[in-house]
Simulated scan of single mutants.
Amino acid sequence: MADSSADLDFSGALQRLGERDPNTAAAKAKEQLDSLDGVTLNIAVTGETGAGKSSFINAFRGLNDDDDNSAPTGLTETTKVAAMYTHPTKPNVRLWDLPGIGTPNFKANKFLSEVKFETYDLFIIISSVRFRENDVFLAKEIQKKQKRFYFVRTKIDNDVRSVAKTRKFDEQQVLCTIREDCHRNLKELGNPKVFLISSYDLGKYDFQDLVDTLELDLSENKRFALVQSVPVCSLAMLEKKKKLMEKFIWLAALGSSVGAVVPVPLLSVAIDKTILVAYLVSCHNALGLNEQSLIALSERMNKPLSQLKSAIKSPLPVTLVDKMAIRPRIAMTKTVHVDGKFIANSFINATEAFKSTCSVLRGALNDMINDMKQVLQAAGLDE
């Protein structure tokens, strides 16, 4: 299921699912799509108070700090207990804002038991200055439990801005100095990778690299959930999402086939439009073409919402599916009563339906990708 399916034909789709009967294969394809949508990903975000955990969580979810349902931010300790924040369009992707390590409410030696360590798939340890003893302690404890952790140095934009007006300003040198400082404080752990991030401009610095790394470390289903949930903040991220979505077009096309091989002469292959709508809506949301995402992007980049919306030319998923001209051909033959003859013709019908549906879905996805490229350009994020 992980390979590209751009050239997959109907017989190949059946073979990939290990089924000979098209109807059984269609049911299995739908089951796999449901499984992808239902996978749960729990990401814990922790670090010392004021490190920018909440802002990172909001940015990861494509929200601004003052949006509805955003994680509260502030200069003082705002997180008293572990707080779960679901993704706006992928509710099974959950980011957890954990209390600051070493605060009066949570001592480091009790931290893991207090926050129910076993709940999370991975940990992101955040600092806005330098990583300290408590950060190293937590990483060691996570290692003992054989779970993944990642160091993220936030507020990089502030660091760069603070020295940008100096005579010998060199941004790359500033970033290199910050990395070296982080590594010095984490030398007990070997040489862990540190991702430099600005929560207010995910398109810069290391956010793409962080997502690439998380993706490689997750199982395929959780990888799908991760890539779908992160915001499109650059052309590189858009391309990553496109490649992922293309992999599952064949499942949506096959899963939407109802009665692929039917026992009634001249009965057309039916198409379950709800599955196609669900797939396209999922793509639409993941690309950030939905209203909520566009509003957040407009506010973040200080661009008129109307300017971003005017870049979108493709129809909404529901409208598109209603207009889909998928018309499987029916063999008008007089030999339908010959044993096996109608079955063969019906298989041809199903093959044509699969091919047509894949073609329409690929075209729709490409249109949405092109729209999002124009949105990024209108927002000034197309570099």
Rank of each mutant, 00 (worst) to 15 (best):
A2Q: 14
S5T: 15
L8T: 00
D9C: 02
A13D: 14
K30E: 14
K30W: 13
S35F: 14
V39L: 01
T40R: 10
T40N: 02
L41M: 13
D65I: 04
D66N: 06
D67S: 12
S70H: 07
A71F: 10
T73N: 11
T78G: 11
T79C: 13
K90T: 10
L95S: 07
L98P: 03
P99C: 05
G100Y: 10
V115M: 11
F123V: 06
R130I: 13
D135E: 13
D135I: 15
R148A: 05
F151D: 09
R153W: 09
R153L: 12
T166Y: 09
T166C: 08
K168A: 09
L175N: 04
R184P: 06
L189A: 12
K193E: 15
I197Q: 11
S198A: 14
D201Q: 03
L202F: 06
K204D: 08
D209N: 13
T213D: 05
D217L: 01
N221S: 15
S229C: 08
V230H: 05
V230R: 08
M237R: 10
K241F: 15
S257M: 15
V262A: 02
P263T: 07
K273Q: 12
K273R: 07
T274P: 00
V277A: 03
S298C: 07
E299C: 12
L305V: 12
S306A: 12
Q307P: 02
K309R: 15
K309P: 09
I330E: 00
V336M: 06
H337F: 11
G340H: 04
N349K: 03
N349S: 12
A350D: 05
L361D: 08
R362A: 05
R362H: 15
L365Y: 03
I369N: 12
K373R: 15
L376M: 00
